[in-house]
Design a protein around this nucleic acid. Structure first.
Length: 395
DNA sequence: GTAGGGTTAG
């Protein structure tokens, strides 16, 4: 474009900038902005918002606030979207006082907050359980004539569900329908998840039929949620019925569906079937993820196939799947429970090398095992940095 | 007519 003599506009730059933002290439973003400014084009609200949102994703509050201040210094007063991005960041990290003062500031400046400001604010208050603030802001939003939309309802319903308040979520769902906002598959999934979390499987099951009857097609989320719900209640048979239904309706299972099923079968002691499912993953065009491997490795450790578990760990890394903190901690706990302290030590070292956290449940397991009078023996087998856990006893 | 924001499963 440039070589043809065309001059990129600020829009051209911001499109490219957004691309870099999506791949979190901060250096490239700054180079591009320098180039733009060098060509005599001043950054506008869009450019600033792409920058703010990119840093917000990294939760680098200092940098976000710095950019926010800088745009003002450059004579560009933040618009509603800029405030929305900042309020979203502050709310998502629980700094509700700061989020509210930004909200008040934008009102003072004469800006009209929209749904894009209220969704993160209310979501933030949901996260910290300030339900009275949620009600208050919801009323204020309606008073301002702002219509809640599908994302808003879904966000609040999800928070209610995750706090066991599925009845209130159902009320909100009904209100949504009453206000003429059409529920989508996602809304049903959220609500079904809510019923599953409190063990009301029949209600969840009813909703699945309900959504079908109004022409919505359940997706892999819908089925995975229900399968997980049944398996959490130990109803493996019912879980398998849902799996059958899912396959009959030609809904493709995701790797997470497989993980849920493998987890359910293992919990039910059906190791062979779990292994068969694992082996069948590739044929479905899927690849196991870190959770799949964690489940299978833990299974191997529990049944004492320690060499096989090591082999699976190696082939996992060879396949480009990297162990995360949760997996390594789980492996260490399984090995300790199995009494293989040297092997546990090997995986402990990996936690160390990768600067992962040593989970509290792993630490307390180590401490309680050592208090059985074998502290000295454990000491010889474990890396030095873990000796302190062996000396605490059970307290 | 070109660009930025808020949400589900292990």
């Amino acid at each position: 474009m440039v070589s043809l003599g065309q001059k990129p506009t600020v829009t051209t730059y911001s499109i490219l900038l957004h691309g870099y933002a999506m791949e979190q290439s901060f250096h490239e973003m700054h180079c591009l902005i320098d180039l733009m400014v060098g060509n005599g084009i001043a950054p506008n609200h869009f450019v600033y918002n792409i920058l703010i949102s990119a840093y917000a994703q990294e939760e680098t509050v200092g940098e976000v606030m710095h950019i926010f201040t800088k745009m003002r210094q450059e004579g560009l007063n933040p618009d509603v979207a800029n405030y929305g991005a900042v309020i979203n960041l502050l709310s998502s990290i629980g700094r509700m006082d700061d989020a509210m003062s930004q909200y008040n500031q934008m009102i003072t400046e004469g800006l009209l907050p929209g749904i894009i400001v209220f969704t993160p604010l209310i979501s933030g208050f949901c996260s910290c359980g300030k339900w009275e603030k949620v009600d208050e802001l919801f009323s204020e939003m309606l008073d301002r004539g702002i219509c809640p939309d599908t994302v808003f309802f879904n966000t609040v319903m999800d928070h209610l569900c995750k706090n066991g308040r599925v009845i209130e979520a159902q009320d909100l769902f009904d209100l949504m329908v009453h206000m003429g906002v059409k529920p989508f598959v996602r809304d049903y999934n959220t609500l079904i998840h809510g019923y599953c979390l409190v063990g009301k499987m029949d209600e969840g099951r009813k909703l699945l039929d309900n959504m079908c009857s109004i022409g919505l097609k359940p997706d892999d989320f819908t089925y995975s949620i229900l399968i997980d719900g049944y398996s959490m209640k130990g109803r493996i048979g019912d879980a398998l019925i849902v799996v059958r239904e899912m396959l009959d309706r030609k809904v493709k299972p995701s790797i997470i569906t497989f993980n849920i099923m493998i987890g359910a079968l293992l919990k039910g002691g059906r190791k062979e079937e779990a292994k068969d499912l694992f082996d069948g993953i590739w044929a479905k065009g899927l690849v196991p993820d870190v959770v799949t491997y964690r489940l299978m490795i833990q299974k191997l450790i529990e049944e004492g196939s320690l060499q096989d578990s090591d082999d699976l760990f190696l082939s996992m890394e060879k396949n480009g799947c990297v162990a995360d903190s949760r997996m390594l901690n789980a492996i260490v706990r399984s090995l300790l429970q199995k009494g293989d302290v040297p092997r546990a030590g090997t995986y402990l070292s990996k936690i160390d090398e990768r600067r992962f956290t040593f989970e509290a449940s792993t630490a307390s397991l180590l401490t309680s095992l050592a208090s059985g009078g074998k502290g000295q023996e454990y000491k010889e087998l474990l890396p030095e940095e873990y000796h302190s856990f062996l000396e605490q006893g059970t307290g």
